[in-house]
Every structure is written in structure tokens, then in C-alpha cells.
Design a protein around this nucleic acid. Sequence first.
RNA 1: GCCCUCGUAGCUCAGCGGAUAGAGCACCGCCCUCCGGAGGCGGUGGCGCAGGUUCGAGUCCUGCCGAGGGCGCCA
Length: 575
Amino acid sequence: MPQTLLALLDERLRSATQLAFGADVELPAPLVLPTRDPKHGDYSCAAALSLAKALKQPPMAIAERLAAMAGLEDLCEPPVVTPPGFVNFRLRREWLAVRVAEGDLVAAPTPTPEIAVVDYSSPNLAKEMHVGHLRSTIIGDSLANVLAALGHQVHRVNHVGDWGAQFGMLLAHLEEIRSGENLGIRDVEAFYREANERDKSDEAFHELARRRVVELQAGDVAARAAWAELVDLTKRSNQVVYDALGVGGLEDVGESFYQPMLDEVVADLEHQGLCVEDQGAKVAFVDGFTNRDGDPLPLIIQNRHGGYGYAVTDLAALRYRAVELGAKQVLYVVDAGQSQHLQMVFSVARKAGWIAPGVTVRHVAFGLVLGEDGKRLRTRSGDNVKLAELLGEAVDRARQFVVNRAEERSEAPPDDLDEVARVIGVGAVKYADLSQNRQSNYVFSFDRMLSLKGNTAPYLQYAYARIRSILREAAKGQPPVDLAVALDDDAELALAKTLVATADAVARVFDEDEPNHLCAHLYEVAQVFSRFYEACPVLRSDEPTRSSRLALCDATAGVLRDGLALLGIDVLERL
RNA sequence: GCCCUCGUAGCUCAGCGGAUAGAGCACCGCCCUCCGGAGGCGGUGGCGCAGGUUCGAGUCCUGCCGAGGGCGCCA
């Protein structure tokens, strides 16, 4: 698909408008939008209303002129002008039929592929991944999928927390228990806690930890080797979670990677006068940020002990991405609590000239995961919920769901029950997150996300499986007589219109960094299909209707499968 | 105290400055005994409050109220 439908309509109408009213008229963007009420057609243009003042003409006259010049005869029925100045378009059945038969409905490649960095997931090493990493990982993965599908070159960067003062105590602790037994993956969390407690209570230990940090930063071979061991250990622990999630393709480029660049980054800032001495520390002041006393709030570049904080690492990372990787888009899929910090980092990087004017750097912020009590999701003891456990419960519940369902239908559960349970359970978790507005907090509920009713992953997965079942059944009988699609019934027409709008939903995910628009669209696809299925017999109908309807089923299945894939959700041939 | 985000139906949420604000769950009615019942059709019910901008505001701006988060040397 060379272009989304909206882009095509917009482009045609834009040039028509400029032909009619001159190239210098200011046109609203977008020029065309889907209508909310089908009685107004499929798409409409309200430009006449906003042009009325500038052109000093009545909106209806402008609308008439626009309708006459639209130049959309191949796509649409003759446009209809309605008061106070809308131009309404209805897609032609013939065009829709051809378009659906062509396939390739999910993504329209961008004419200008760019290098993009999506920074997401970002676990802290020496700790197990917990629910705080869930949204970043899921949303980041989906946005990266969408960017890639549009033809951009995507770096999926895992900015792992693998550096910092805490590694001193971890190394010291590692030495002490080295004599004991080797570390198991499950011990990572306990290991961190133990080290932390000793660091607080034991002065000699604390001193040792401090020495180890210095050695590590100086590149001491032994310290470095022990550090690498810890890094490797926790990466293996995290890999279990990524495998369960079905999230791959991440490049680990952690904080340690940028350490060799920090001196240069700070020197550059100082050279440009962006960094000043304040209360013994080196800081960068950023316009518009104040602390609780109303004084200017600095970004701490170097603390009073001469150490670099994470702000410098973030600056170095951004500089590296924009300057070395040549990224034209840098997305930070990071919780909303980091908003102020990131805005400050972006601002300093811009001032330093590391971000060229055409480069966009965006904080894709998201809210908290809440329990059903409306409070931050935590275990009873107040700890963060481990991701491995959360996913485990989702899969267990999904398995139970599948088993129960098979029982109700007096069938044997599927042979690949574990895989089915994983696909459903993990899909439910992902979809529940992605289908909501990422800015707000969201309430985590296994019962809701695993329901077969409503806007859930299992609903969509079931819709897919059922369509595949029809197609399998069809394959046993007569081969299709004709690959053409006919859209005689209103339900067929409605389905075709929805399918053809898919690439626009995906485009919108890209434009706004909001996967929920694709979720809403896929749900609509499933609903419209349901109406079609109710109204239009497929296998029982006569040729050539049967073949045409099978083609619609096939196109719908393809849209569901590929759309869910962009969300990082798998489908199953059978549930 | 300042900054950010959010506030839409009983509940969970959509809603790209455009026409009569939409789904799902729950509740009420009707229809379908189907190609795998995710049923289909209809009904009840809502934009926190007050101003402003605009031909047009749930959407933009200001103030207030409420919830959450953040606010100098941890990351």
C-alpha cells in the first residue's frame, strides 16, 4: 500500500483546494477526517468552514466549489455538501472491492525512512524485573514494531541500569559469598537486599564498597570481571522475562556503555558555558524549571564529590543517538515521573547543539499500574510485583480458562495447552495495557483482561481463530472460482471500509505514539466482522458470493493477525 | 508552595477543534436454535465547576475543585 486512504484523500483534496483558491490559502490539517455518523458519509472535509473568513465567501459556496473540484471520482461517489459547509464523501464499492482484494492493508511504508531510536524497558541490573518495567517494555515494543513496519530503521535500545555507585556494594558482597555457593538466577533480588543492608550497617563493608567503585571506574581488571559476571547473571534472569513476554530485538546499550564519553560530554558543556559551579557541584540551569523554594532548578552534572550522576549518562546517550547513530527520531518510553528530568535533559542537549532542528526527541510518558483497589500495584508486603510472577499468574489463569472452555464444549483441551495459555495470558496483559490511554494510570485486572467479552486480547484472538476455522473448512471444499470481491450487502461494505482504514489507525499510532488507536481499530474490525458474519452466510452461500466472502474473511484474518503482531501479540489457529 | 498528568454513563475506558459524545461490563426488552455463541437489534444512563477564544469546545486558554506523580547532588 503506497499511501493510507486518509493521506490519499488529503493529498487529492489539498491540491484541488489550492487549484480552486490559490496555493497560498492556509488549510487546516488534517483536511479530511472519518465521519462519526455514517449518515454523513465515510469521510468529510470541514475546510470550507474555516476558510470562509479568509476568503470572504459563504462556507456553503466554498464547499460547493470544493466538491466540484475534489477530483476523487475514482475513489468516491459524487461528494455531498451539507450545511453549514461540510463536504461529505462516500467510498465507491468498486474501489473498495479492488482495494480489499489487493491486500497489504495494515501499513503504508513511509516515503522518507529515517533512523529511529526507541528507548524502552530499561531494567536495573542486579534486580529482578518488576511491574514498573511492564508498560515501558510493552509500549516500547509496540511502537518500535510500528516504526519498523512503516519502513524506518529502528534501534530498540535497552538502556539497562548497569552502572553506578550501587555496584560497589554488589561487588563487595559478591566477594564475600564467592567462597560460599554460586549465585542462582532466583537469588538476584535477595543478593541486592543483603548487599544493601550490609552497606548500611557495616562500616568496613561500606569502605570496601567505596574502594570497589573507584576501582571499577578506573578500569581495574578484577573489579571489571566481577562486574561483568553480575551483569551477565542478571541479564540471564531478565531474558527469562523477555522470552515469556515474547519481546525480542532489544540491543543492550546500558549506562556503562556511555562511561567513556562522559568526560567529553561535560567538557563540551563547560566549553559552551552551559555548565556552572553551584554549591560545590557542576550544574546546568534550564529555563522554566524551579525547585520547591521557587529557585532555579539545576540539572546536576557532577556532584560535589566529583561523581557523575545519571543526568550526564542520559545526556551522553542522547548525544550518541543523535550524533553518532544519526537518529532523526528518539523516543523515550519512560514513566511519567521522569518527565521533568527528561525535559531538562532534552533542553540541555538542544542548547548544546546535539539535536539538529529536524530531529524529534519525545518522551513517551505513561502512568502507573494500579491494583483493583486503585492504588499502586504492590504485593501484600509492599514490594514491587515481580514481572515473572505476574506473567506466570496470567498464563495460569489463561490455562484454566482454556481448560474450562474445553470442558464446557465437551472437547479435549488442545495438545499445545502450554503454548495456547502463554499466547492468551501474555496477550491479555499486553492488550489491557496498550488499549488504554498511556498517559493515565491504569487498573490491572486479570478478570477483565482475560474476558472473552469486550475489548480484550482473547476476544480478538478468538475472532481470528474462528475466521481461520471458516477458511480451513472452505479449503476442504471447492477452490475459489474467482478472486474478485463483491460488496453487495451493506455488512460486506461496512467490513471493507473498516479493513481499508487499518493503515490509518497504524499511522495514527505513529503520529501520536499511542498504540491504543490500533487496539480500538482492531476491536472495531472484530465487531464489524461479527455483524457481517451474522448477516452474510459464507460457506453456505452460492458462488461467486462464497468466494468473495471467503476473500473478505481472509482479509479480516490478515488484518487481525498483522495488527496484533504490531502490538506484540500472537494469534492462534485454534483456541 | 511550584511543575506535570488525569477528571467523560453505576464500573473500566474511547473520543485527530466539526454535525445528535461512543464502546465494553452491569441492568431492561426483542430477535436468531448458528459457518466454532466473540451472538445480533434496541433501551436506561454522562463531559468536575466557572469564565474565555472560536462560525463551532469533551477537545484550546485562564482560574478553581478533586486524584496521582515529580520537585538539588540515588538511578
